[in-house]
């Protein structure tokens, strides 16, 4: 159900970094959005972002929410998003967050009852991974009778905050869903060669402190295993327990995500592998902006969850593809095999 938006929406964007600045520009160009207010503690960056857009974009500071805000997009560094999300939900505005940190994701999901009470949606992890990976998992699951396993992986980093999070994730405890319970595993363990869409191709990937399993498990009833990995070099693994040796680049190069689904289709084992390639900050911005536009004016979505849990994900994935983030499918391999059905 889509409530007609009488006046163009007012959107508040927290963060004017590599992802946030792109979100601001995408929303400002949308006819559904009349006004975008961008907030960032870095005054110079805030000014640059506002100056690069038309008059519909204004600068502001702080966490205070205006009563007429329709949507809030939070693209600040992980660990700082829960406070802004809580302020948005308390003010009766839907919010789209991009966090990939485990503890913050738990904190955001815990706001679900408050969001449902206030009749607003709180989307958790609407970025490249998690985010696009959740949409791909949902799209791929349509061809299964039952999804047993979901394995997601990511290569590349966006802005400096994303690179720092990647570094921390590799040395922190990972969380896997295995046979119906949560399992803690060491970050940097579980090496697996994952094949991403070109030009990224094959990269060794490892467990890390990634929040994907927390978002995918509630969305796929009966799933037995969910894991998340991130690509890392030998130097990344050796230096992971140390502070970052040098300042991260303003933005990383081309990255990619990959989702592998395993399960049953017509009493046979079936495997589907989906992916996409983009600069991670660009990919995250497309997913966050498309999600915000998807939710503006919708009265039938409330509560907190990942993108695999929200309604009408097919339309959202098409909107993401229309913005240039085109999903791919790996074909021609022989992993599917006949199997007698379980009793």
């Amino acid at each position: 159900m889509r409530r007609p938006q009488a006046t163009p929406a007012r959107v508040i964007v927290f963060g004017a970094g590599a992802t946030g600045a792109r979100v601001v520009r995408m929303l400002a160009e949308s006819p559904e959005v009349g006004r975008v207010e961008v907030r960032d503690p870095d005054t110079a960056r805030l000014r640059r972002t506002v100056d690069s857009c038309d008059d519909s974009v204004t600068a502001a500071r702080g966490l205070e929410m205006p009563p007429d805000a329709d949507m809030v997009v939070i693209a600040t560094p992980t660990g700082t998003q829960a406070a802004a999300a809580r302020a948005a939900v308390n003010a009766g505005a839907s919010a789209v967050t991009t966090s990939s940190e485990i503890s913050e994701t738990r904190e955001l999901l815990a706001l679900g009852s408050l969001a449902a009470e206030n009749g607003v949606a709180l989307v958790v992890g609407a970025g490249f991974m998690p985010g696009l990976t959740c949409l791909l998992a949902r799209a791929g699951a349509a061809e299964f009778d039952l999804v047993d396993e979901i394995h997601v992986a990511k290569a590349g980093t966006g802005g400096p905050a994303c690179a720092r999070q990647h570094h921390r994730a590799l040395s922190s405890l990972a969380i896997d869903w295995r046979d119906g319970s949560w399992t803690r595993r060491s970050g940097g363990s579980g090496r697996e060669l994952c094949w991403f869409p070109d030009p990224v191709a094959g990269r060794d990937c490892y467990r890390g402190a990634l929040s994907d399993a927390l978002l995918l498990v509630p969305a796929f009833e009966g799933v037995e295993r969910v894991t998340a990995r991130l690509a890392a070099t030998r130097r990344d693994r050796l230096t992971a327990p140390l502070p970052m040796m040098r300042r991260p680049h303003p933005e990383g190069g081309v990255g990619a995500v990959r989702v592998e689904l395993r399960g049953r289709r017509a009493a046979r084992r079936h495997v589907a592998v989906l992916g996409a390639q983009a600069r991670p900050a660009q990919g995250a911005a497309i997913v966050a902006a498309a999600t915000a536009l998807h939710l503006i004016g919708r009265a039938d979505v409330s509560g907190a969850g990942g993108l695999a849990s929200i309604r009408d994900t097919g339309r959202l994935l098409r909107a993401v593809a229309d913005r240039g983030l085109r999903p791919c499918r790996f074909e021609g391999f022989t992993l599917s095999r006949d199997e007698t059905p379980r009793p």
Partner: peptide, 19 residues
């Protein structure tokens, strides 16, 4: 961490496969 796939490749999804 493993062996690269010996067959297969990536192709972009068509619009009707996105739903």
């Amino acid at each position: 961490g493993g062996v690269p796939p010996q067959t297969g490749g990536w192709r972009e999804l068509r619009d009707d496969e996105l739903a």
